[in-house]
Amino acid sequence: MPRTFVKHRSLWIMVLPGLLYLLVNNYLPMFGTIIAFKDFNYSKGLWQSSWVGFKNFEFLFETRDAYVITRNTLLYNVVFIVFNLVLALMVALLLNEIRKRYLQSIYQSIILLPYLISFSIVGYLVYSFLSMEYGFINTVVLQKLGLPPISWYMEAKYWPYILVLVNAWKYIGYSSIIYLAAIAGINNEYYEAARIDGANRLKQMTKITLPLIRPVIIVMTLLLVGRIFYADFGLFYQVTMNTGILLPTTNVIDTYVYRALIQTGDVGMSSAAGLFQSVVGFILVLSVNQLVRKFDKENALF
């Protein structure tokens, strides 16, 4: 061991900054999760604070919040996965039908553009439609239809629909590009054979394209399922403009942890919710990986 260390001294020095960084940024926090079992006190610090066992978790699961944030996180992710999958597949299949290469690339670029826009700007875009006084929906659309204006940022019931739309707007370009790349990899001979057998384009789509990209669809979906316990913080924080009144339908685990930590300073509750998320998330990633291995060993994470 010491001899290889000397022999590869330069290589070890190369990896050193990265390893130290991961140690601080990733591994220290992993050990720091024990804070969820402590009554944390800023002046005493992590090590001196006293142990309280599962008290923080008991407090957390006694509140209604625990149920609401878990339900919201799971339900939103399920709807996002299904809705985006259907739309992205449709976009990818149709993009593949476009004959003119330059049009295909223009359409693809425009649909991908929202993926690059940060949620702080998406917040503005949504606000320009939904603002109570000046928003496009209230001042133009609803007025033309003869309907009274709606206080969008005061009514929690509309937000599940709004967030599903915004999420689709932002991410469909991304998923459709993955599927399009998979379709482009299909061997042309399949299509030629099908054409000789008299299959039309629609038949080719359902009988050749979809079955052949099925492994990619399964892997992509399972990867998302593995992250079903994590919510997109930007979507739920920026797009709702951090509005308290919308919380019943927009509070998710990530926003709850953030608010408990930064806004109310309740380290106990937020670390309990955070560890709950990390552990369930870890179990999900491991089980999903086992599933991926079954379908497609090549694409399993490990």
């Binding site: 991961l22 601080v24 992993m30 720091g32 999760t33 804070i35 942890v257 953030y258 930590l261 994470l301």
Partner: peptide, 24 residues
């Protein structure tokens, strides 16, 4: 070492301990 890197993708400690490492 590759596993050392890879494990950070599988598990993370979450916001609270990460925040405390950087602030405290």
């Amino acid at each position: 070492l590759a596993f050392f890197v890879f494990f950070t993708i599988l598990f993370n400690g979450g916001l609270v301990p990460w925040y405390l490492v950087y602030t405290n």
